[in-house]
């Protein structure tokens, strides 16, 4: 028997079926944003309208959560980019005692269920009597965003040949000049990709946030409340589209920034 050079029909069908299963449900979000029915999830929609976009735009309760989410995502991403890059640089350039433990520590916030991270922070705030604020949300988000930036940065550091830094030093650059003119241009796209993903992750995070937000409402928390106690359901769909698009494009950009990982800068022998 010939070894399988082409997939069997069953396998192809199952694979494509799996992909469709992953993608089709999202499309319904878009459809339901245009339905004229705002009390049930009736399918097919009795009629189509674009008025919900205007209604959503004029709903005053949507804007503050949107601003809060953007602010939290921006601050958390910035912090995660600094901390994640630092730890990636340290982990990539040397072996030292406790290295394995540190890599475990970085992964832990996303390896353990979000409810644990959230509940841990909640316990700490309770013990130390820290009131809920934007900062408490950021503390949670920055913690699990570090690993995203770290993953992207460390992969690029590994591909970056040490020879380019030595060449830079040989040509008379000091460490800071090497960083500015050699390291940063090579790391740039990976850091940007990491930042994009961290932003996307933070922007729509809800599990940790519910524990660290108190009475504040980020956009995902606003959505969650609407899901539990719906009113004007299509408006929720409009917001869902906004959230989806705000996270979709950073992900896509991150993909294109880190694509073609085989060309190692300075690795040509």
């Amino acid at each position: 028997m010939h070894s399988e050079a082409r997939p069997s029909k069953g396998l192809t069908a199952a694979a494509i079926g799996g992909l469709l299963f992953l993608h089709l449900p999202i499309l319904l979000i878009f459809l339901y944003a245009f339905t004229t029915e705002d009390r049930t999830y009736q399918f097919p929609p009795p009629g189509l309208t674009t008025k919900w976009f205007a209604v959503a735009w004029n709903r005053a309760d949507i804007w503050p959560p949107l601003y809060l989410s953007l602010r939290v995502a921006a601050i958390s991403t910035a912090m995660a980019m600094v901390l994640g890059t630092l730890v990636a640089a340290a982990m990539a350039r040397s072996r030292f005692f406790g290295r394995e433990q540190i890599s475990l520590l970085i992964i832990l916030p996303i390896a353990l269920p979000g409810v644990i991270t959230g509940m841990s922070l909640r316990s700490a705030f309770a013990i130390m009597d820290i009131p809920f604020s934007t900062l408490t949300i950021v503390m949670g988000h920055a913690t699990f965003c570090i690993v995203i930036v770290y993953n992207n940065a460390v992969a690029r550091f590994r591909r970056l040949s040490g020879a380019v830094l030595e060449a830079s030093a040989d040509l008379g650059a000091n460490g800071f000049q090497s960083f500015r003119y050699v390291l940063l241009p090579n790391l740039g796209s990976a850091l940007l990709a990491g930042g994009m993903l961290a932003f996307a992750l933070s922007f729509d995070e809800v599990i940790v946030t519910t524990f660290t937000a108190g009475q504040q409402s980020t956009l995902p928390i606003w959505m969650l409340n609407e899901l539990v106690r719906p009113r004007q359901r299509p408006v929720t769909n409009v917001v869902a589209i906004v959230v989806f698009v705000t996270t979709f494009f950073p992900i896509l950009i991150a993909y294109y920034l880190t694509r073609g990982g085989s060309e190692t800068a300075g690795g040509g022998k």
Binding site: L22, H23, I26, P220, L224, L227
Partner: peptide, 26 residues
């Protein structure tokens, strides 16, 4: 991309999509 995009895209939006799908009148 077909695997990465659903992995990264908004968790809450995905759950919401299923609320629409599974509803009695859905």
């Amino acid at each position: 991309l077909g695997i990465m995009l659903p992995l990264w895209s908004s968790y809450l939006v995905k759950v919401y999509a299923w609320k629409l799908i599974l509803a009695k009148e859905g």
